[in-house]
Design a protein around this nucleic acid. Structure first.
Lengths: 179, 179
DNA sequence: TATTGTTATACTCTATAACTATA
DNA sequence: TATAGTTATAGAGTATAACAATA
């Protein structure tokens, strides 16, 4: 342990006798090892990326989880709620309101299944398909904005590393299982 | 490394001959482009890593945000709450309860500042310093668990890419500002 | 008896406004 | 007037338990 990366010389907490802490710049706070902790940087990066995503999808009032659900329904027409729940790590109970919203807004629909009247087959509406077409463009631009900062090579490498972390460190929470 | 990645028995969704679909086993859900979206993978990775972190720090009942606050106080003794707030992207209002908890448990303390009676200088207690020493070991082991999956080189590279993303895509929300 | 979708509920995080006591 | 810390509150996101209908 204690590779103790860059030990910055602690910047004196300059504090004038009156007020005016620092001219007008950034806080002189030393983050220490935090920037070297994967968890900390993952959280910061996730917040940053989600913020860009949110801004891009704001006009359509679609959030990450909703986009993921739409995408998975598009790719797997007829999917059941429990399957979406398991695939995306969303509790069955929490998926209900999300789908209610998508259905109410005319993007997705629940179709009764003749062979199993407990469940519904999920499908996109024409409006939902059209929406996804537009969102796909916004998503591509969003990804490109990321590529613009770390390069497309860096983006691919980032994805590769994230997959490695996910697969090994936390193979997802086995989802929904309750009771 | 993935030691068999213990795949839960996951009762095969045994279902009559009705809707054939796919045989037993894992969910036959196609995630489509989701695994190629940085935002989606960042979220999955963050959840996975935080889960490992949580398990590691569980015995001490310390969560990521609390650990970050303790670290930053250790590195910058005498820091004001507003500075911690700005540095860690935690709203001033939300920092109060967090510090109350750390203070109540004897890990940190608020020391009145003679020159400005509105604010407090934050310091670790001896107990807090001792705790951090122990937590540092757990944190190092936690990072090593990540290195074990993508290699120490991969971990370093991951950190580099995450920094790139954070700096360019979202230089943090300028924090607390309200009103 | 087990599963699907559902409701109700609770707990954590985060966000905003407004208050106090200082400055 | 502006700022530091605080309070209260609201909103997401996520977690569990229990129920009805169905398998």
């Amino acid at each position: 342990m204690s590779k103790t990366a860059n030990v910055r010389p602690k910047r004196a907490v300059r504090r004038p006798d009156a007020s005016a802490g620092i001219d007008r710049g950034v806080a002189p706070v030393d983050l220490g090892v935090l920037p070297d902790l994967v968890g900390y940087m993952l959280r910061r990066a996730q917040l940053a990326v989600f913020q860009d995503f949110w801004r891009a999808f704001e006009a359509h009032d679609i959030r990450p989880a909703q986009y993921a659900v739409l995408l998975i329904i598009e790719r797997n027409p007829g999917l059941r709620q429990s399957q979406v729940s398991a695939a995306l790590n969303i509790k069955r109970a929490n998926l209900v309101a999300l789908l209610d919203s998508l259905e109410r807004r005319g993007f997705a629909k629940r179709v009764p299944v003749a062979t199993d009247r407990r469940s519904y087959a999920l499908h996109l509406t024409d409006g939902g398909a059209a929406l996804l077409k537009k969102l796909g463009e916004l998503s591509a631009a969003h990804e490109q904005r990321i590529s613009a900062t770390i390069g497309e090579t860096g983006r691919k490498e980032l994805l590769r590393l994230l997959h490695g972390v996910v697969q090994a460190v936390g193979p997802s929470t086995t989802d929904d299982d309750e009771s």
